[in-house]
Every structure is written in structure tokens, then in C-alpha cells.
Simulated assay, not measured.
Amino acid sequence: MDSTWLVLLSLALGLVVGAGFVWLLHSAASRSHRATEIVSPTVPDGVDQVLEALPTAGIVVDPSNNVVRASAGAYGLGLVWNAALSQARMVELVDEVRRTGEPIAEDLELARSTLGDATVQLTVRVARLGSRYILLLADDRTEAVRLEQVRRDFVANISHELKTPIGAISVLAEALESAPDDQEQVRHFASRLTSEAGRLARLTQDIIDLSRLQAAEIVPHAERVSIDEVVASAVDQNRVLAESRGIQLATGRASHAVVFGDESVLTTAVHNLVSNAVRYSPDKTRVGIGTRLADGVVEIAVTDQGPGIPSEDLERVFERFYRVDQARSRATGGTGLGLSIVKHAVQNHGGEVRVWSQPGRGSTFTIRLPEAEHIAPSADVTASETAEVAQGERTR
């Protein structure tokens, strides 16, 4: 009897111990699973696909502000570094959304990296993603902000540039009215009035030309154009002014080069370069205009013996209304739009314009265009297709 009870007691004790051991194993496994979920969190289904499809930069962070998902755009903007947000302000926005639960939108100007001073303009939106995660979206508005600033500057510059000749015309008209019997004064004021009216007309025409060039990415009606004829026409337009100051316009030998494009637009571009060279050259000096054909590229170079351009201004000389020397430019009658017109005219023909200059050694502006024979379009190619081919040749 005693032995039977001992057996039953042993069995019961074994069952209790076994059940306890199984419970311990289950508990340990549960804790391990929960720990795994914390260490390696799983974002909601579909988030990866959404981030790939978004045109903006997208980032998902966990409760410890670790970046668990990020789009290529986020890395491209430098917003993620070493699996963490690289911008302190973004971390602050994430913490605020986690604390309040309310989404936030804010415009930020952030450094693109710690290696330079380049910045990006972003519109950032931060909101909860489920109960654990925070979703951050960043829309890059850098180019839009830059264009808006350019627009504001353009309007301000136009207002300023128009104000000067209009004011001068008004004053001269009053002076003429007050001295009708003084023939000498009348002739003087009339000459000044004609000069200011011409300046106003040139500025207005330059604004119109630049607007047309910027509105069209390619030449709408491209034809075969002789570069020698373009150069000859541009030189003739500046010959009277050059001879009045004893400046020699020296042209090189004929290149016989042909390009596809608009002859009047190309003539305007070369004319602007020659006109600039004449206006900024000292009296009794020389302006050289040369053409060259090499490897399917036509080059038109205009060289002067003027004061030159400082290195810090070389990157900006093609901007609208930008002048290296404000006083000298106004004295020579420049509108501040000539080089900008050159840049857009050449780009619309699939080419580029370059500048070399050193203070005291003069400047050389070079237009580079794809040669028509090098492009060799068939007879049924449209003008727009021809310009697109030219653009491709330039970027190869």
C-alpha cells in the first residue's frame, strides 16, 4: 500500500515539474519573440511600395528614432546618415509628433551635408504611422525657391532699368519746354532725348528677345545657316561704332561651316558678343572674331583687349542684368541682357557658350555649335527633331 502511494506521488510530482518546465519554456519563448519584435520591428505592409512610388523623400523611424525605412530620395538629399536622421530639426519634429500625436508641416532650409555650404529648401510633413512609427515626407523645393527669387529679381531689375531712361526722358522734355528760343539748348536736349529713347528701345527689345528665347527650348524653324555669313553680318552691324573709336575688327579666314538653326537669332548672339567687345575695349585697340571647325563642332570666338573679368564674376556674367562694373556698363549704354540672350540663343541651338578672361588681359567668349554636316539629318526630318539631335550631339 505504501509503495503504491509512493508511486502515485512520484508520478504527480513529475507531472507538476514537467508542466512547470513547459511553462518556463513557453514564457521564455514569448519574451524572446517580444524582444525580437522590439529589436527588429516590422513596418506596416505596403510601406516599402509607397516609399518607392512617392515623388518626395520618405522616411520611417521607430520609437528610438532609428530609420527603419527610407527612399532613395531621402539618401540623395542627405537626410539619413548611419540609420538615423542627419538633421537635428527633423528629430525635433518627429519627437513633437510622437508627443502630441498631431501631424506637422514646416518649411526648412537645411545643409545638404557637413562638407560644404550648399543648402536645400524643403517642405517637411511629419505624422504617425500606426501606433509605433513616425512617417516623415520631405519635398525638395530648392529649384522652385531659386526660380521665384530669380523672378522677383528680374521684376525688380526691369523696374529699375526702365525707371532710369523714362525719368531722363521726362526731365529732358521739361527742359525743352522751358527753352524753346535757345536753339543750342534745344539741339543739346534733343540729342540727349534721342539717346535716352534709343536706350529705352534697346532695353525693351532685349527684354522681348530674351522672353522669346526662354519660352522656346528649341528652334521652331531650323534651316541650314552659314556661319561665315552670320559672322559677317554681326561684324557689319558693329563696324561704324568700332571705326568711330579706332578699333579694328579683325576676322579670320572663312570656315565654310554650316549649322542648323535660326540665322537671325545666331546673328543676334554673335552681334552681342562683338558689341560687348567693342564697348569694353580701349580706343585704338583690336577685336578679333574667328571661326573654327573641329570634330563636328563649330566654334566662334570673340576676343577683346579690355579690362578683363575677375574670376569671381565669371560664373555670373550670363545672368540677366548682372554687370561686373555697373558704372562703366551704364556709360557704354549696355542693357545688362546681352550675354543672357547669347546664352539662351546658343542653348536653343544645342550649343554652349564659354568665357575665358583675366583682369588686365582681356576676354574671349566662344560659341560652340554642332555642325550640320556632322548631324546629317535626312530630308524629311522636322525642325524640332533636328534641334533635338543637335542637343544630343552637345551632351554626348
Rank of each mutant, 00 (worst) to 15 (best):
A372T: 10
L172T: 11
A156G: 09
W23K: 05
V47C: 12
L210K: 00
T332A: 14
G333Q: 07
V389P: 00
P377F: 03
A173Q: 10
I218K: 00
F154D: 15
A376Y: 03
L147M: 13
A111C: 05
S3P: 03
D262H: 08
S32I: 09
E217D: 07
Q358C: 02
V67N: 04
G14Q: 00
L135A: 15
T285V: 10
S195W: 02
E352V: 02
E299P: 00
R286S: 13
A250C: 09
P220A: 00
R99S: 15
A84T: 12
H256G: 13
G334F: 04
L13H: 01
E96S: 14
Q205L: 03
L8E: 06
R69A: 13
A57E: 06
L129H: 07
E196F: 04
R187T: 07
A88N: 09
Y280V: 04
S32M: 08
D48S: 12
I367S: 04
R146N: 07
V7G: 10
P103W: 08
R98P: 09
L241E: 13
G101D: 08
D236Y: 01
V186C: 14
I289C: 10
A72P: 00
T164I: 14
T366F: 02
A35I: 02
G288T: 08
L369S: 10
M1Q: 08
Q391S: 15
P307H: 05
Y322D: 11
S281A: 14
I208M: 10
L108M: 12
L193A: 09
V22C: 10
A216M: 08
S113Q: 05
S340Y: 00
I218H: 07
D153E: 15
H344S: 14
M90P: 00
L200F: 05
S255Q: 08
D117H: 07
A179L: 10
S113L: 11
V287N: 09
P282W: 01
N65H: 10
R330T: 11
D140G: 02
G78M: 15
P44F: 06
A156V: 05
D236Q: 15
L339P: 12
R279E: 01
S64C: 06
L9I: 07
G78F: 10
V39H: 07
S131C: 01
H221E: 14
L54Q: 07
V235F: 03
L314Q: 15
R224H: 09
A242W: 06
A232C: 03
G78P: 04
G306D: 08
T100R: 09
T386I: 14
V61M: 12
D313Y: 04
D107W: 02
N276P: 05
S64T: 03
N82F: 05
A168E: 14
Q87P: 01
Q248A: 11
T142K: 01
Q87H: 02
L314D: 14
L137K: 04
L93T: 04
L136H: 07
I169Y: 02
L293Y: 03
A372Y: 11
V240P: 03
